[in-house]
């Protein structure tokens, strides 16, 4: 079935930035909500895609139907990593559990494509919110970030915004650690460190290319 139009994501990058800049509690709630809603949606969608009933899936991972019901309910979903590993095995998909900068979580939740650089020093040492000069919790720094986002929408600003030349204008990538200083020198002050707010995601994906089309799960 073809759809005539695509609708923008409910969460825009700008709206998410405002939400996360509110407080550490708001950021923690965002991470919790993304895991709770995302994982339950993915489990449900994966099971439905295979036409498995909840009891069938329960048997496959040696648990109860009630446990599957709870896992698929965002209000009660509290999956352990052990359970997620079992689910990944029966779904025959990969499971990714790692800390990431908030910028990556924002890209995911807003449906923005981004490039994942893979295992690197930068992926191990994830800077926190307070360490990010352009994404601090005060209005001035948030305003600077919004300016960067606005400017990034202009094609001529692609290089300065950190977006990937020659690709969709919404694609973004993280700087290599040894390229960071060089990249900063080419950026505006507010653009430097623009992708360095950490969050945590638990993500089950099929193995594939390093570029992820970010989304909220459910497919």
């Amino acid at each position: 079935m073809k759809k005539p139009n695509c609708t923008p994501s409910i969460w825009t990058e700008k709206a998410l930035l405002k939400r996360l800049a509110r407080s550490p509690e708001a950021r923690a709630k965002f991470v919790e909500s993304q895991i709770r809603n995302g994982i339950s949606g993915q489990i449900r969608a994966q099971r439905n895609r295979r036409h498995w009933s909840q009891p069938e899936l329960a048997r496959k991972i040696e648990t109860s139907q009630n446990q599957i019901y709870r896992l698929e309910n965002p209000a009660t979903a509290k999956p352990t990593i052990s359970t997620l590993k079992k689910l990944a095995a029966v779904f025959d998909v990969a499971l990714v559990v790692r800390f990431v900068p908030f910028s990556q979580a924002i890209a995911w939740a807003s449906g923005t494509s981004f490039l994942d650089r893979g295992l690197s020093t930068g992926s191990l040492v994830v800077p926190n919110f307070a360490e990010d000069r352009s994404l601090g919790p005060n209005k001035d720094t948030l305003s600077q970030r919004e300016q960067v986002l606005t400017a990034a929408e202009e094609p001529h600003q692609v290089a300065a915004s950190g977006k990937v030349p020659g690709t969709n204008s919404s694609m973004r990538h993280e700087s290599l650690p040894d390229q960071t200083e060089q990249a900063k020198s080419q950026q505006t002050p507010s653009a430097a460190n623009s992708d360095t707010i950490p969050g945590a995601v638990i993500d089950a994906n099929q193995q594939g290319p390093r570029m992820f089309a970010a989304g909220a799960g459910g497919h």
Binding site: S33, R44, A109, A216
Partner: peptide
């Protein structure tokens, strides 16, 4: 309240990309 709107938007954000067949009783 802002945080209540966030909760609603988070749920709608998942539904927005969920195929019709997967709109189920929990939500």
């Amino acid at each position: 309240p802002e945080d209540h709107r966030d909760e609603i938007k988070d749920r709608l954000g998942i539904l927005q990309v969920t195929p019709r067949a997967d709109w189920e009783e929990l939500f």
